[in-house]
């Protein structure tokens, strides 16, 4: 136990140092800040416009009211934002594999995956948090979701689990580069798929797809199942108030699985210039 504690303190110290460096780097390029502060929130206008202008005209989708959809959308954007802060590097794993960028991490006494994500922690991800918080609060107001202590803890567990699920999937996809030896730039597409499947109710898709997105690729747990429960909407997986904790569990399992696959892939790493 003491050993785990000191390891945690160690990684925390290194992480703080990495965050400090990331902030210093941002200050070096002030013109970038403006670019991302403007461009990141823009991408959520489309989703919000869809809910506001399209869904509202039809009254709702599959038994989800307009306010409930805003809540779902808010959770989706928030978990997206956190995954952008901590795990966006996964999108560029192929580049690291091809260019031999893992060399540096492999010669240091830290987990390679940890270094990969935290050496380049993306502080700009906060620009995605802003629209996420706004839409989420809007959804809360429309649905009368109250901020009781248990609701707050639940939302936190949900967001941590959802972020881990997203991060784990980025890692699993990025890891394919160890086998294909090409820099697969899948980021944009993955984000689109996540958008479509986490911002709207999963129940609008055919059963086979719901099964895949529940068991094979656990996207359903990012937002749909836990939020359904919070909103009191019946699904195949109403777990008596445990939904958010299942999400957390699924997130942890996905991340562990991703870490294992990454380790196997890393053995095939060939550095660069051979």
């Amino acid at each position: 136990m003491k050993k785990i504690g000191s390891a945690f303190a160690y990684y925390l110290g290194v992480t703080m140092c990495n965050i400090k460096m990331a902030l210093l780097t941002i200050v070096e390029y002030p013109s970038n800040i403006l670019g991302w502060v403007i461009s990141n929130p823009i991408q959520f206008l489309l989703g919000f416009a869809t809910i506001k202008f399209v869904v509202e005209q039809f009254g709702g989708i599959n038994g989800w009211s307009y306010g409930q959809l805003a809540f779902l959308y808010g959770i989706s954007v928030l978990s997206h934002a956190f995954s952008m802060i901590f795990f966006v590097q996964g999108w560029f794993m192929g580049f690291f594999v091809i260019e031999g960028e893992f060399d540096r991490f492999l010669t240091r006494p830290l987990s390679v995956l940890y270094q990969f994500f935290f050496t380049n922690i993306n502080v700009f991800g906060f620009t995605d948090l802003i629209p996420g918080i706004l839409v989420f609060l809007y959804g809360c107001a429309k649905t009368g979701f109250s901020f009781t202590a248990s609701n707050m803890v639940g939302i936190m567990a949900l967001l941590i689990g959802a972020t881990l699920i997203r991060g784990g999937i980025y890692i699993l996809l990025g890891t394919t580069s160890f086998w294909t030896k090409s820099a697969n730039d899948f980021g944009q597409f993955v984000q689109e798929i996540f958008d479509k499947t986490t911002m709207y109710p999963l129940s609008m898709y055919p059963e086979a797809m719901q099964l895949i997105l529940t068991f094979l690729i656990p996207i359903g747990w990012v937002s749909f199942y836990p939020v359904s429960e919070l909103m009191g909407i019946e699904t195949a997986f109403s777990a008596g108030g445990m939904g958010v904790w299942i999400t957390l569990g699924v997130g942890i399992v996905t991340m562990i699985a991703a870490g294992l696959v990454f380790r196997i892939g890393l053995r095939r790493y060939e550095s660069a210039g051979n």
């Binding site: 039809f58 899948f186 597409f189 689109e192 499947t197 709207y200 109710p201 898709y205």
Partner: peptide, 16 residues
């Protein structure tokens, strides 16, 4: 990926 995006959009319209 593009096909998945296309299909998800199609189901959105169907449901709506």
């Amino acid at each position: 990926m593009q096909v998945i995006i296309m299909i998800t959009t199609a189901f959105f319209w169907k449901a709506l």
